[in-house]
């Protein structure tokens, strides 16, 4: 091999190595950009899904505004406790019973081991007496108080002179925001 051929072989080898390097680098860049593109596309998809969910929730909140306001009004607030008791006592005059409030306390919100939170409760107890009809009407009134509640105890006793005495205990669910 003469000197010229030797030089030519070296130049050809260098050219081949450079071309191969450029080709491999281009391949690496293409793959890298492809992976980046796939990740970006996935991210855009997730963002679009989140945006769609947000819009759905937003429209749902908008469409259920009245319902939520009504449901909110079905739960008594802690600050309204006194006015609630006052209203209950005021109603005794309308129905015609004598009422005594024998219990008024708040059971705080609790969370069980499963992470389920029970709302705070307003515990109230009433003793009231009157005619059979009045007691029945007042009991019906208590039963239909437009608040979310549970009547835990009801008892009646008929005493002398056709006077009926009743005892009612209730648990009203307190509102929490």
């Amino acid at each position: 091999m003469n000197k010229k051929s030797h030089t030519f072989l070296i130049v050809a080898t260098i050219c081949f190595l450079v071309s191969a390097s450029v080709f491999l680098y281009a391949l690496y860049e293409v793959n890298k950009q492809g992976v980046r593109y796939a990740e970006s596309k996935k991210l855009i998809g997730e963002q679009t899904a989140k945006e769609a969910s947000y819009n759905t929730v937003q429209s749902l909140l908008e469409s259920t505004r009245d319902d939520r306001a009504q449901i909110k009004s079905l739960f008594i607030e802690e600050d309204d406790t006194i006015s609630f008791i006052s209203e209950i006592e005021k109603n005794t005059g309308i129905v015609g019973v004598a009422l005594t409030t024998n219990e008024l306390s708040i059971m705080p919100s609790t969370t069980d081991t499963n992470g389920v939170t029970s709302p705070a409760l307003l515990l109230v107890g009433f003793d009231f007496s009157g005619s059979q009809n009045a007691v029945w009407q007042y009991l019906t009134l208590l039963e239909n108080i437009p608040y979310h509640k549970q009547m835990t105890q009801i008892s009646f006793v008929k005493s002398d002179n056709n006077l009926w005495k009743a005892n009612v205990k209730m648990q009203l669910t307190l509102r929490y925001d």
Partner: peptide, 15 residues
């Protein structure tokens, strides 16, 4: 890959 449409999985709001 570019032609593939992004599948938007919208979570249903439990109401």
């Amino acid at each position: 890959e570019m032609k593939k449409e992004v599948v938007i999985i919208e979570q249903a709001v439990p109401y």
